[in-house]
Design a protein around this nucleic acid. Structure first.
Lengths: 166, 166
DNA sequence: GTGCTTGCAAAGACTTTGCAAACTT
DNA sequence: AAGTTTGCAAAGTCTTTGCAAGCAC
């Protein structure tokens, strides 16, 4: 079982290009702050919050403000580089979306807070069946499973927690 | 196609009893405010927000404060009379749960904001299959489908919007 | 009478916004 | 040079909490 802790170099380059081109296409400006926030976001593969991103960005550029992070996040999500997810807490999580996969299921470990993104093809079928029953046209669907770590309850330790450097 | 706009009288009585007994069991007190908030919540079957509930409660008892509504909502959810749901907006919705069904899917109409609660038995199976793959123990699951009203896009009007008295 | 509850207002948590200075193009 | 972007601080939104007066038991 291999865990990837870093986005591959070529994916990073590609994403950086997508980001810059998106900014230019929107007639916005490629600023140092925006680039630094991009680098901070793509520095690793775990999910993060706006606050995490601020902290990570500041390690690259000490002057970055919270406001700029909040103003840059929509650019990153609109360009499909990040996926925003709301698991019912009062802040949002952000996930890298560099593989551009459309995975519609999230499994959230209540013990270590890790968010596993999974493919759940049956949800397309389910959405279609709903369409017929309710006279609605499905636009998006998301399955969220909250779970506990089995190893934690059996052995008293969660392997994901152990892996965390922080 | 029949739409129920009111909870049946006997269900209402039963729920009121559950509410009172829950309060007593918890060694809390049956106050006029709590009763008024209960009546406001069970006045109809649509979903509502904390703010809606405050407004409806005040029609019964003018003195009820926002704080009391927020302090009463946990009593109603803990006693399983209401279900709290978070669809990613910055406030929560509450739904009557008098039938005590465990429906795990919500279909949210982006046009009229109506929330349809549906049964989705396959989710149990899905959660179990995840358990094996990830070494997790599923605790709860929720499927959320966002959709558009077909009639609205075809005929320019949403039947649910029409039904709304407000 | 005891001690839970209430309303009020202030505080909290996260996010957004107004504004003048700074920067990209 | 023109107009976007930034940092700062204040404002916003929903929810929670401290406190003294009031109410349930």
């Amino acid at each position: 079982m291999t865990t990837i802790n870093e986005i591959p170099e070529e994916e990073l380059k590609k994403s950086r290009e997508i980001f810059k081109e998106f900014i230019i296409k929107k007639k916005l400006r490629v600023t140092n702050q925006r680039l630094a926030i991009f680098e901070a976001a793509f520095n690793q593969v775990e999910h993060f919050t706006a606050d995490d991103l601020l902290e990570k960005s500041r390690k690259i550029d000490r002057t970055i403000s919270r406001a700029t992070v909040y103003r840059t996040l929509p650019i990153l999500t609109e360009s499909s580089l990040l996926k925003e997810i709301d698991i019912g807490k009062d802040f949002k999580y952000y996930l890298l979306n560099y593989n551009q996969k459309t995975e519609h299921a999230q499994v959230i470990c209540l013990d270590c807070d890790k968010i596993h993104e999974l493919d759940a093809p049956f949800m397309e079928w389910y959405a279609d069946s709903i369409a017929q029953k309710l006279g609605l046209i499905p636009e998006s669907q998301r399955l969220q499973v909250s779970a506990r770590c089995q190893k934690l309850s059996e052995q008293g330790q969660c392997p994901n927690l152990d892996k965390r450097a922080v």
